[in-house]
């Protein structure tokens, strides 16, 4: 059966990832392996989220951005668009306090809100939130009106201004539609973690954590409980899935 083959592959990948995880950081598992069979839909039992420790995120480091570009194929594919027109799924932001001069650095991307303004305003329902909290654009029914871009408080979304070729098979992107961080949904569905988090940890920065916010025993939940984690524009009450420590 096809199902069995798939399950075997997934089990193997899970074990391999676990082994790799143990090798990278003995004693510390950076994420949890929670297998969901390929034929079952994502459910609200999980809510995927990310925690960024700004104290460990250094100015000038762009490893997470590079990893995202490589994973999804943005950054060099748009040749006709100017810098302001090119897509950016994740970017590094440098903050300087106007009074104290204190400098901080953090990656900024789609915050995967619990009540996303982009989903509210989308006329066709192309802008959507999956049951497990991942906010996505269904490019099949996106008409390219860009109202979601007007509504996003984080400027997390990009519109594609020119025809594209040679996309990654797992990351379809095309002219006239809007796109943004997918929280590497294709990896998450295969029990993986987002490319940015993987890269940040692999390079030893350990500034990013990914996991299930609904699981009190997950690394991310424990850290959030112990150290807290702020939301950008908490005043809007959007309950973001991406949290920042030391903001």
């Amino acid at each position: 059966m096809k199902q069995d083959t798939d399950m075997n592959r997934r089990r193997f990948l899970g074990q391999a990832a676990a082994a790799a995880g143990l090798t990278v950081a003995p004693g510390v598992m950076l994420y949890e392996v929670q297998a969901r069979p390929a034929d079952q839909a994502a459910t609200s039992k999980q809510r995927w989220g990310m925690l960024i420790d700004t104290s460990k995120c250094s100015t000038g480091c762009t490893d997470c951005v590079t990893a995202c570009k490589t994973e999804h194929g943005w950054g060099s594919t748009e040749t006709k668009s100017n810098a302001e027109q090119q897509a950016q799924w994740i970017r590094k932001v440098k903050l300087t306090d106007k009074q104290t001069g204190h400098v901080q650095s953090l990656p900024l991307m789609c915050q995967h809100c619990e009540t996303p303004p982009c989903v509210d305003v989308c006329p066709t329902g192309a802008s959507m939130k999956r049951a497990d909290g991942i906010v996505l654009v269904d490019k099949h029914i996106c008409i390219g009106c860009r109202y979601c871009m007007m509504a996003c408080p984080y400027k997390a979304r990009s519109f594609i201004h020119e025809p594209l070729m040679n996309q990654k098979p797992h990351a379809p992107r095309g002219m006239g539609t809007v796109e943004s961080c997918t929280l590497c949904v294709h990896r998450v569905d295969n029990d993986g973690i987002p490319a940015c988090v993987e890269s940040c940890n692999a390079k030893g920065h350990k500034a990013m954590y990914f996991g299930d916010l609904h699981d009190p025993n997950s690394e991310i939940s424990k850290r959030l409980k112990e150290f807290g984690g702020e939301q950008i524009r908490a005043d809007l009450g959007l309950n973001t899935g991406v949290r920042y420590q030391g903001l």
Partner: peptide, 22 residues
């Protein structure tokens, strides 16, 4: 001006009623 004007039929048939655009 839409990015995908040929999908106007989508906008006319699928409505997200929380959207003022719809």
């Amino acid at each position: 001006d839409l990015g995908q004007p040929d999908r106007l039929i989508v906008a006319m048939t699928i409505y997200n009623f929380k959207s003022i655009f719809a």
